[in-house]
Amino acid sequence: MTAQHPVTRVEKLRRTYDHGKVVAVNDISFEVPVGGSLGIVGESGSGKTTTAKLIVGLEEPDSGRIFFDGQEIGTGSSRKLRRQRARTVQLVFQDPYQSLDPRQTVGGAIDEVLRLHTELSTSAFAKRRAELLEQVGLGVREAAALPRELSGGQRQRVAIARALAANPRLLVLDEAVAALDVSIQAQILNLLSEIRRETGVALVFVSHDLEVVRWVADDVVVMFRGSIIESGPTAEVLQRPEHPYTRLLLSSVPRLGWDPAQVSQARREFLATQ
């Protein structure tokens, strides 16, 4: 038996804008093992969201390759490719207020995706639908509701359920809890860990929040100006950061005795050396 392929392997991915003048993502490579979870951290503009978009196919790379289960899915936006991708990798957007059709009920949104990606009998369909709702902790009442009748946390649960409906191998979460209250963040993060344990779906967390990543990611890559500057097991990287930028990020997390002026000063000094 050959060694198991990682769910996703990214090889020397590069994406530039404005005719190559702005390098958003600069030759980055990483792997996500089956059922694993990877955190991609960095500040705004570090290229982490572009990376997420590249993985799910919202953007096409200038060069580099993306493998899913050892196979390359072509880049492009044809319907067939998009559908093939959707059954492998799904994205949960940052803003739960914007990522759902305001005129579609929660149940309708999930049904629509199930109809597109599966060919279930009527009874199996209803069962799967109930299973998905239950997985994200939503009830019958929420299923009949329109997005505007739900809270941010509930909406994000809907978005997660919809993403899971296609039975993907990988779930990419682009700042998926950043727009939520801290207590709701914890609920959603717990939910994701649970879903990962139950379904074996691998997770990629794109976040500026080191605490979020510490909570859910096994491995972490730190991005700065489009490049990966440090990577490794999350606990290790956050305990003993090697790169000065990672140390800077860690010191920027607000906590007791935290001094914003000092952080800004350290940041200026670091950027001056780059």
Partner: peptide
């Protein structure tokens, strides 16, 4: 360009 349309595109729904 709103995310909900993007989300549907990613799902692979026909335009």
């Amino acid at each position: 360009h709103r995310p909900y349309i993007r989300a549907l595109e990613i799902q692979g729904f026909p335009a």
